[in-house]
């Protein structure tokens, strides 16, 4: 499985954005197993890029091909299958079910295409320091805790690409490192690629390619 990006640019961006960017307006090929780090200042379109790759938005020019198929031709059912089997995501805004517990939020994703047994939820939450929060409703968790729930949720399924939009923005260095270790471990088991988009450098991410947005 590979991801091809052909000269894409958000339709609301000026063409001049292509000049300084290593992503906008460029040809990129991302293969399975690659760790890509995209460094981007505010307003450069980080979240837009992640949403384009995940099929949540289509307001761009150029084309994105997943396994040689243009994602603009994907039907809602195609996207459902793709998000269940091939692409997982950690949203910048977490996007959790606030009225559900931590355990329920993760289980909702796990049961969709179980890569791990249910016991793994407890193991991972303990590892990231939110083991005691399993039965707490997400709305009562801090942003940092929610971010870790969101990370664990993304690791419950099989994937070829893991998209992460500022995944550690609410975590301290220690917790970020722990989370990063878990993500890398899980990605390596799947021989999956990570595309991490962040405002600043994340030193503990062993990227194979660094791109400036």
């Amino acid at each position: 499985m590979q991801l091809e990006i052909h000269s894409i640019l958000p339709s609301y961006f000026d063409e001049s954005k292509k000049n300084l960017s290593e992503v906008w307006g460029k040809e990129l090929l991302i293969k399975k197993g690659e760790f890509i780090k995209i460094l981007a200042p505010s307003g450069s379109g980080k979240t837009s890029l992640i949403h384009f790759l995940y099929g949540l938005r289509k307001d761009y020019t150029g084309s994105i091909l997943l396994n040689e198929r243009n994602i603009s031709s994907y039907s809602p059912e195609d996207w459902a299958a793709c998000r269940k089997n091939n692409i997982s995501i950690v949203f910048q805004d977490m996007r959790l079910f606030s009225k559900q517990t931590v355990a329920e939020n993760i289980e909702i994703k796990r049961q969709l295409n179980p890569y791990h047994p249910a016991e793994k939820i407890k193991e991972m939450t303990i590892r990231l320091g939110i083991g005691e929060k399993l039965q707490s409703k997400c709305e009562t968790c801090s942003y940092g805790e929610q971010q870790r729930v969101s990370i664990i949720r993304s690791l419950m399924q099989p994937f070829d690409f893991l998209l992460m939009d500022e995944p550690f923005s609410h975590l301290d260095d220690n917790n970020s490192k722990k989370a990063m270790e878990l993500i890398i471990e899980e990605s390596k088991i799947r021989n999956a690629s990570i595309i991490l988009v962040n405002l600043e450098r994340v030193d503990y991410f062993p990227f194979s390619r660094l791109l400036h947005l």
């Binding site: 809602p76 059912e77 299958a81 079910f97 295409n113 949720r153």
Partner: peptide, 10 residues
């Protein structure tokens, strides 16, 4: 949110 994490509309 269910749809965006991979639940099928069908």
């Amino acid at each position: 949110l269910l749809l965006s994490i991979g639940y099928s509309p069908r």
